[in-house]
Amino acid sequence: MHIVYRDKEWFVDQELTVNQMLKYLKLLPESVLVVRNGQLIAEDQKLQPGDEVKIVSVISGG
């Protein structure tokens, strides 16, 4: 799968849950949303090798 977060990207070819992915990337589920193939998904969902994953940061400042 192809994972995009801000200006970074990763390629992963194994199945894993959203929670596992966030843990690997050291991101708090409280601070982001995960979109798989254009659709918002919850943290217990499984990601497959072919998925296009976008992690959206939800924290804004100012």
Binding site: E30, S31, L33, V56, S60, G62
Partner: peptide, 20 residues
């Protein structure tokens, strides 16, 4: 929570400025 307002805009397809 901020995460919920973000989820609403995503689901509704509202185009917003993501940059700070």
């Amino acid at each position: 929570y901020e995460r919920e307002t973000a989820a609403y805009t995503l689901i509704r397809g509202i185009d917003y400025i993501e940059d700070e």
